[in-house]
Write a protein that binds this DNA or RNA. Structure first.
Lengths: 130, 130
DNA sequence: CAGTATCCAAGACGATACTG
DNA sequence: CAGTATCGTCTTGGATACTG
């Protein structure tokens, strides 16, 4: 624990500032798997492996890691039943639901834009090739 | 009209699917710098170095790379005046503005949640340490 | 000013094996 | 089932130097 010249200011909020708390949080949410995990949980609670199947391509390690970060930040709730075999259910907290709602809105815009993006890319590549 | 079988790899749209077009697009947007660049441009047009100053901490390389990806996808417009010294202005396209709006909504939620996230982390860490 | 090119370190990521 | 541990690869990303 060093308290040297670099002050890790606890309450910088503007995302555009470096060392800002909100950036770290935002990166958990907008990270490669964070977005997909939250969007999946927006459809309802999931058990670990069900979530893993839903979010196609994620490894055990990354899903566990992502879920832990989101749980620590208070966006995801983890409910473990101490049975054998273990049953663990993940769901959104109220705050997680708020975030997830914004994400699904974003995803919808993106999905509806897929064809236009394909066109835009073709134009860009054609122009660059010339 | 949507086919039931898995048709192709070309126009898979569901984000949860691997090899899906929307995932790649989404990752440009939600990437470490994509989100911040779009959010910054939501406040108005910016020249390269102004944007670099605004988005604190981004390197030349990453900003250029991010901006090119977003331009190629049709979210950002690049206007270059062939003067000396060169003047290049970046702005949002209409589709980029749509996306940026969703992003700023997300950022607002995150920023307003900063204090609660800090609490949640403290609780989580305390529970884990025990 | 607005980039491009190159190098290199850090860590993100995936596969696998193992535990409770 | 729900993870953790470990290892090796491959990408990400920053610093620096250079061009038009």
């Amino acid at each position: 624990m060093s308290g040297d010249g670099l002050e890790t200011d606890q309450l910088v909020v503007d995302v555009f500032a470096r060392n800002c708390s909100s950036r770290g949080i935002l990166e958990h949410i907008t990270g490669r798997w964070g977005t997909l995990a939250l969007a999946a949980l927006a459809e309802g609670p999931f058990r670990f492996n069900a979530l893993r199947r839903k979010v196609d391509g994620v490894s055990e390690k990354m899903l566990a890691q992502t879920l832990q970060a989101l749980e620590r930040d208070g966006f995801v709730h983890r409910e473990a039943e101490p049975t054998i075999p273990p049953k663990v259910e993940y769901s959104l907290t109220p705050r997680g639901a708020e975030v997830a709602a914004k994400l699904t809105a974003l995803i919808e815009v993106v999905e509806s834009a897929v064809p236009q993006v394909a066109e835009a890319r073709a134009r860009y590549d054609a122009a660059k090739a010339r």
